[in-house]
Amino acid sequence: MIDVRKALFGYSEWRWIFFFNKESWLSRKSKNGWVHKKRHSGKSGMALLLGPLFRSQNAPDPPPPPPTPPPELVWEDEV
């Protein structure tokens, strides 16, 4: 009998459309043995696209941007 879930998601290259990264519920289920090979980078395509929103817990935090001084009032009447 065909495992529909496996057929749809398990080995499909399109899996990244539905799941953002390896921390998804699908990966957790993989421990039960019905899913697949690991992606080479450990990060799906969508994770790369939406990286800042759905960053993998394993990925190191990007370095903080250098502090910029807050803007001061711009006196536009002095011309």
Binding site: P70, P71, E72, L73, V74, W75, E76, D77
Partner: peptide, 11 residues
């Protein structure tokens, strides 16, 4: 907007 420094032009 001014005090949050979003738009600080005095005009």
């Amino acid at each position: 907007r001014v005090m949050d420094r979003v738009f600080v032009s005095v005009k």
